[in-house]
Amino acid sequence: MKLSSRKMTKEFAIDVLTWYYDPPYDLYNNVVTDEAICELLNEGYTAVVDGREELIGFYCSGQAAQVPAIKESVAYSKPAVDVGVGLHPKLTGQGYGTVFLSFILNELEGLNPDSTFRLTVAKFNKRAIRLYENIGFKMECEFKTENNEFFTMVKW
């Protein structure tokens, strides 16, 4: 699968916000609002397209990739480049994750050489945790919010 990054546009943002994930992954569902569109356009999100220029996912880095309610906790106290990713629901669970995440990490490594990368993942998301471990991420921290439990995972 040939992947390329593109500037997040309003059209891409609306597309991402309409993606529907079946339970238990519905934690990742969104609602199209002006505020949500603005976040995707202004918080460092990047669209990922395939060889046909179809949107297949997105990524962000920095604070946009952190769980907002926990930003001040020990989970994010060590220096690292936080990475957030989203793959189109029609492509999840089909073996595309390794190519998708490797593409994103290669792009970010070019911008942040010799950095530690950190992902935050919902504790129930065994499929994503397995992918991250296979790419070399290790568990670092566990934390809870009012509604969910998460892990941070790091890769040096």
Score class of each variant (00 low, 15 high):
M1I: 11
M1F: 14
M1S: 14
M1L: 14
K2L: 13
K2F: 10
L3D: 01
S4C: 00
S5E: 10
R6S: 08
T9Y: 01
E11V: 11
F12V: 00
A13D: 03
I14L: 03
I14F: 00
V16K: 04
V16F: 08
T18S: 14
W19A: 05
D22I: 07
D22V: 11
Y25L: 02
D26Y: 07
L27M: 03
N30Y: 11
N30G: 06
V31K: 12
V32P: 09
T33E: 09
D34L: 10
E35D: 14
A36Y: 05
A36L: 00
I37K: 03
C38P: 02
E39F: 02
E39V: 09
L40A: 03
L41V: 09
L41M: 09
N42L: 04
N42V: 01
E43R: 11
E43T: 03
G44M: 05
Y45W: 10
T46I: 10
A47I: 05
V49I: 13
G51H: 13
R52A: 14
E53G: 04
I56T: 09
I56R: 04
Y59L: 01
C60F: 07
C60T: 13
G62K: 02
A64Q: 07
A64V: 07
A65K: 04
P68I: 08
K71D: 03
S73A: 10
V74W: 10
A75P: 11
A75V: 11
A75Q: 11
S77V: 08
K78V: 10
K78D: 14
K78L: 14
P79H: 07
A80P: 09
A80Q: 06
V85A: 07
G86Y: 05
L87A: 04
H88F: 00
H88L: 02
T92D: 05
G93N: 11
Q94R: 15
G95T: 07
G95A: 09
G95Q: 06
Y96L: 06
G97H: 10
T98R: 15
V99L: 14
V99W: 08
F100I: 00
L101P: 02
L101I: 11
I104H: 02
I104C: 04
E107G: 06
L108A: 03
L108R: 03
G110W: 06
P113W: 11
D114Q: 12
D114I: 05
F117M: 01
F117D: 01
R118H: 09
R118S: 12
L119I: 15
L119S: 01
T120W: 12
T120Q: 08
A122Q: 08
R127P: 04
A128P: 12
I129M: 13
R130C: 07
L131T: 08
N134P: 04
I135V: 12
G136Y: 09
E140A: 13
E140Y: 12
E142D: 06
T145V: 11
N147T: 15
E149C: 14
E149P: 03
F151K: 01
F151Q: 01
F151H: 15
T152A: 10
M153K: 07
M153R: 02
V154H: 00
V154M: 05
K155M: 13
